[in-house]
Design a protein around this nucleic acid. Sequence first.
DNA 1: ATGAAAGCGCTAACAC
DNA 2: GTGTTAGCGCTTTCAT
Lengths: 355, 355
Amino acid sequence: MAVRMKDIAEDLGVSLVTVSKVLRNKPDVGDATRKRVLKRVRELDYQPNMLVRGLASGKSYTIGLVVPDLLHTFFAEMAKGVSAGLRSESYQLIIASAEEEPGIERQEIEHLLARGVDALLIASCQNNARGYKSLLKSKIPYILIDRNLAGLNTCFVGTDDVAAGRLATEHLISLGRRNIAHISCKLISTSVGRLRGYKEALAASHIPFRQDLVAIRSRLEEAGVQIGYGAMEELLKLKKRPDAVFCYNDLTAVGAIRCLLANKLRVPEDVAVIGCGNLLLSSYLEVSLSSIDQSPQQQGKAAAKLALSLIARKQKPTEKCCLIPPKLIARRSTLGSAYKELAEERLLVHKTSTT
Amino acid sequence: MAVRMKDIAEDLGVSLVTVSKVLRNKPDVGDATRKRVLKRVRELDYQPNMLVRGLASGKSYTIGLVVPDLLHTFFAEMAKGVSAGLRSESYQLIIASAEEEPGIERQEIEHLLARGVDALLIASCQNNARGYKSLLKSKIPYILIDRNLAGLNTCFVGTDDVAAGRLATEHLISLGRRNIAHISCKLISTSVGRLRGYKEALAASHIPFRQDLVAIRSRLEEAGVQIGYGAMEELLKLKKRPDAVFCYNDLTAVGAIRCLLANKLRVPEDVAVIGCGNLLLSSYLEVSLSSIDQSPQQQGKAAAKLALSLIARKQKPTEKCCLIPPKLIARRSTLGSAYKELAEERLLVHKTSTT
DNA sequence: ATGAAAGCGCTAACAC
DNA sequence: GTGTTAGCGCTTTCAT
């Protein structure tokens, strides 16, 4: 068995409580005693059992994070941000992946609650808020990240998707494009915002909105490349062909580019393409991809800070939303040969961190 | 406060112990009582507090996984495999990332131990076994994954790196190449194995080994593209230029390919390139990359199963090593135009899972 | 088949 | 400053 506080107390002839106080930096312990305890703790390399501490104190000093899929670098980055945001406060992160299955997600949430996490961060893969009843019942604070769910009156941290849509579309307009298509996704909060931003940007430049230039598809998260390819094929059949496309995400953009190249069209000379997400692979592609960066690490960090503040003061925060402003990253798929990639850009593995 | 077993017991006029037994499927409970308890449990949507269960029983039903970096898809995939391997046994996985910092890794290991994990899986980013003293002190079983450390007499799950090196090199030989270079990494268990496999394959085909064709670099995990580029530049200066390169990992191969293209050499006509790891990006590249697949999910699953068996029978296992056989994935960077990528290969996001 | 008692290792409230 | 007492919500052992 591992060393326990009791052992240290007995070794030193003091009470267990005194040891406990020393370990939690309580002021009401004599200096000499404190030193003796710390010495013995170091000698034995004693580590307090956090499970028990949690049980006795009612706080576990852990925060749970549920993501749809860790293979999606967006969420891996987000996890990194959360982790970084907690480390300084000596809180610990427990990561769970839902494997894109709403059922597994619910199960993982139950597990985390049963493990006594003090707060929960959820990048949901649910279609609606129905599955969250046990969450609502438990009193612990929880925060949605990346994707918002209607009907859950809780905090949200995510991208300002309207701004993202505007940014991407304005960029294409600024390059002189006027027939700008949009490949969008069905029924989720992020796609609604991006579509609105797209429309706003068009309106601001007095470009009439054309419904036929908007291709709406589903499952763009899981099979973006494939579906982006198909959507682009459709768009190419239009009488008035688009000269630019704003794609819901980067995978969709990869598919769109492949379709264009397969049809002997040049990117970006004939059709400029921009994605959204700025995944790590963006700069590795045949045509390096312009995209909208969503700073997932920053999102994670913001969510962590928010969670800590919710735990600290047990009240609801004033702000219910924390929207991270997106950033335009223009590369070859919109700028063409005007884009001289920096040596670093071509050679670095990771994007520079956005901390 | 959440519902407790006591509440259910009082509601039903039975003892807390009986409820506990029902919940853990103990046989010594009457059928009628069992039904009443389960009914009430469902009504209240009761979830046992796992922290407490762990405290009382001495088992936490959790397993810890420490990886160097979740952004590295290899480890994200591995985590997925571990998670899948545990889910069926209703064990839960706690993932921690060391952010490539040996110090953080040690800290995360301490945390996981303090949380009472029943076993620990470690994909280490340490340079040596010195930091693992507290692990050795604690009696919980732990398993190294992917990278082995000398001096820790424990179980290991990983790639058969010698086979990987042989496979890659044999492939290049089978394509008629005879001046096969190798960009290798310094001082880690995986690179030693791959180098040996490379030599073995050359020997088997009676191709003399040339030291000048082996470029040894460090930090290939973190800055592989950059360093691969530089290493390739060096190799191109040789009087007898290589006609193929086996790179330690895929990022290094990406760098090598960029260097070759920048020097107006054709891949694979002038120089064939193969990597190792078969990362998700392999098929997205300018020249889709041949690689050696290491089945990280399968590794994770194997490690999970091994951990469970170590927990079950408290003894050491007979086998100390579990080596997963690598697989050759030949693409355009070695096969050239002979490689007709399948529609799926060009369009799918994820590799087919290896479960 | 059911339950009383003891205890897991710690913290919190209060007394000395 | 230090120690005592009473839990936290379960499991385990053993008696009935």
